[in-house]
Amino acid sequence: MAKLDPLLLDPTRLAIVSLLAAAEWAEFGFVRDSVQLSDSALSKQATTLSKNEYVEVRKGYVGKRPRTWLNLTDAGRSNLAEHISALQAIAEKARSDGAQQPRDPSVP
């Protein structure tokens, strides 16, 4: 059975990782605007994810402007896949439990 990932139970971290899951590389600015975080808040989350080897951070220059790109590592990708499976199992179980429960005759 798929296991939930404690790191991805945080909604902000899950949003960042989900965004990166569909991309090979994403610009820091794009991730920041998409998940609606400040630079420092995203930087903090990216450091946490990077320390746990979920995310790879690359810095570089485009012209004279410094840029940062984020990439979901293979480990991050497989942990997210397992986390999604666990979430689906929870949602699916609730759905099947709800379907099996007999209807209350007093409810119109």
């Binding site: 909604p11 899950l14 990782v17 989900s18 979430l87 949602a91």
Partner: peptide, 13 residues
């Protein structure tokens, strides 16, 4: 919460 998290995943992608 699980359903909301799955929606977040889908929206991100």
């Amino acid at each position: 919460e699980a359903a909301a998290a799955l929606r977040t995943v889908h929206e991100g992608k």
